[in-house]
Amino acid sequence: MKTGFCLRNAQVNQMLKIVTVSAEGELGRRIRDLGLIPGTECKVIGKAPLKDPVALRLKDFTLTLRNSEADHITVAALED
């Protein structure tokens, strides 16, 4: 686990850890309300038929996120 990269570029089924969340305002609030904060482990488990939005699996539940919203989140890959 070294440098962070944008969540948009994450591969499906790659284990990730959130490094930063830079969104502000309503979007930032929604992202945080659903538990996307630095340190959270997650993985992209699927993409919608047109590749956007993506389904993101957290420890206890799944949420959806547009690519444009994923741009505000940087993640790092977790080595197994």
Binding site: L27, I31, P53, F61, T64, E69
Partner: peptide
């Protein structure tokens, strides 16, 4: 924002 739960 589309950040939305995908309930089981």
């Amino acid at each position: 924002p589309f950040v939305m739960e995908l309930p089981p």
